[in-house]
Amino acid sequence: MTTFVQLTITGLANGAVLALAALGFVLIFKATGVINFAQGDFLLVGAFAVWSFVVQVGLHWTVAVAAALVLAVVLGVLIERLVLRPMIGEDPVAVIMVTIGLAAVLQAAVQMIWGVTPRRLPEFIPHGVFRLGDVTIPQDRVFAVLIAAVVLAAFSVFFTRSRHGIAMRAVADDQQAALLQGISVRRIFAMAWALAAVSAVIGGTLLANLTGVSGTITEIGLLVFAVVIVGGLDSIPGAIVGGAIVGLLQQYTAGYIGGGLQQVVPFVVLVLILLVRPYGLFGEVRIERV
């Protein structure tokens, strides 16, 4: 029983971070209909940027995160302007491949600037444990869950309440209709990429706290695909539930079956979900059957 509770708690905590990592992916897909294969690398760039500002520049971590956020906005807008905008209206397969190329460029840039040695972020989240009977709950995970919850809630409110958020949903729904309403589709696209980069900085920093700053983050970034497919590509609640499901699945397989099976289980589930319900649990039912 203790094991079960322990696995559940760890799974949920990992799931929250995964949901946050998936958020940027959902944002971009929601607004622009682009599948961003570079999301994992966005996370990595975010984590390294924060590490650089804290360790190399010596800023306080709040300032460092703020600086990294500004950098993320610039990077997001630049990528949208230079790489994605020329691809508007192209075959979806070509757009996917462009983001794959983008992922390679980002990865190469990270290697050139920061090298391949894993780094440690200085601890700015408490690292102790809470005890509940036999169950231990690492404090850093509790904080990760809290931060993830706040950010996800903020984005949900943004999408339902703010002018820009609603404009973004309008663009996602129908670009021409949105243009007729006087919404600048270009600006919305740029904003979506900037916001995705911003969420990646937060997600990357949290991941870096749990795993260290290294290429592992990109691998975790690939789990994002499982999260968004389970939850639905265009749904923020879906990302949260999908994150929880993938997190729990991984923990249960690791705890009860073992043998490294937890690395592959998310992808098996992904294929099964794709075959049965491709739009996920919460996604909009719009998939084309062939």
Partner: peptide, 24 residues
């Protein structure tokens, strides 16, 4: 086989999964 029901971006993700499953 997933290609029978999926195309475009969904198929890309499904084949990505097959890559990981095979290597695993």
């Amino acid at each position: 086989l997933p290609a029978l029901r999926l195309k475009g971006l969904y198929l890309a993700i499904a084949t990505l999964a097959s890559q990981f499953i095979i290597i695993w």
